[in-house]
Design a protein around this nucleic acid. Structure first.
Lengths: 208, 208
DNA sequence: GCATGATTTAACCACTTAGTTAAACTAAAA
DNA sequence: TTTTAGTTTAACTAAGTGGTTAAATCATGC
């Protein structure tokens, strides 16, 4: 995904990322990865002993990528609404650059959730801090009362789903007009921010 | 998915639906489908000549299912907000009963979009009528101005995505507490409805 | 020059897959 | 009784699959 050096190992990782992300673990073929890396199958196994090891290396990389560094945004001092806006911007930015990640992650976590578990445990992902912050803002009357989990689910859903369902969006909504589709995705960040703000921010006349 | 008669053909369709929906086209094995249907592989091919034909039969059924009969709701006389509420209720209802459909559809339309195309063309799915209605309500000042496509995308996203990402929601948000997870999904319809109404309905003091 | 690691080639293994086939059996219809 | 469709069994094919191996080649630095 990132521009790599072009050592053989990096060429393999890049090729494997492409193939795995588009075809998935089961659909991917070692031969195809070798071809795309411009090497042969023997050398592929020379570097990464098995398909599973290669896949795990790439899956971990992608998951780290898919849970972006919202930690920094969340732990800042800014007001909650500003944080939400930044998270949405960060997500849409990421997804415009890597639109195939959502479908890949959904596919693989549903095929074998254990990979996700390991990584979540490893990185100590804990959403409680975020929920607490949201709850605090609600108690202060800045935003409407709702379960923080649902608010987070709503925001993440609106960010990610249109990329996961890209073929439907493209064909049903835009008749495969690529430019219109790109424009749509480019608008998403502003649209979602406005939508969320309308939905939760309490205009400061009377606070509930 | 539906309770079938138990003719052999229906047993096969039921078994194939289960296997395809959980494993996908590539992960599914004809032998497993035969086993689950309580028959043998030869008979499976006797009824459905190939894996592809069997898959297509089931995929069409699922897609019909996944685009629920919102036509009836949309073409009714009720105000737009009421229609939106009904669509959300219909979607969440459907997904609680068939929570694996979103992941399956996302997987398969990304693997091979041509199946979707055929079906969309066949059923003459046209979202323009919906967009026109939404635009009308906006022009009448009932709801805020935004691109109807984005509004539809937002609503559908919030409905479907939490089911597609079920393993993440379950583990990260609920530590695999099944009861809490079920409760979460049961709350979704009300939460989404409230969220959308807050976001788009103009309180009738001054209209924009 | 020589040693070392990277790389290729090409054959190979063990296994799985979708799909076929032939033979026999069952049950109900004609 | 005979015919027919449905069904089973079991063996088979053809084509992949991931993975291994041995030998030869290439490039580099010591």
């Amino acid at each position: 995904m990132e521009p790599k050096k072009d050592s053989t190992e990096d060429k393999i990782l890049e090729a494997a990322t492409n193939v795995f992300v588009t075809k998935g673990m089961e659909g991917a073929r070692m031969q195809e990865i070798a071809d795309e890396a411009g090497i042969n199958k023997a050398l592929l196994h020379y570097y990464f002993r098995s398909k599973e090891r290669l896949f795990e290396a790439i899956f971990a990389e992608i998951i780290k990528f898919a849970f972006p560094k919202i930690t920094r945004i969340v732990t800042s001092d800014e007001p909650i609404v500003s944080k939400i806006e930044q998270v949405i911007d960060a997500y849409i930015d990421l997804l415009i650059k890597h639109p195939f990640i959502p479908a890949f992650v959904i596919k693989e976590i549903n095929r074998d959730p254990s990979g996700l578990f390991k990584l979540v445990v490893k990185f100590g992902l804990n959403p409680q801090a975020i929920f607490d912050q949201i709850q605090l803002a609600m108690d202060r009357g800045e935003i409407v009362q709702m379960q923080p989990r649902h608010l987070v689910a709503n925001i993440i859903s609106m960010c990610i789903f249109p990329f996961a369902a890209r073929p439907i969006i493209s064909f049903v909504l835009f008749k495969d007009d690529q430019q219109a589709l790109d424009a749509f995705y480019a608008e998403r960040a502003e649209v979602i921010k406005q939508f969320v703000i309308n939905a939760i921010v309490i205009k400061n006349k009377e606070k509930v």
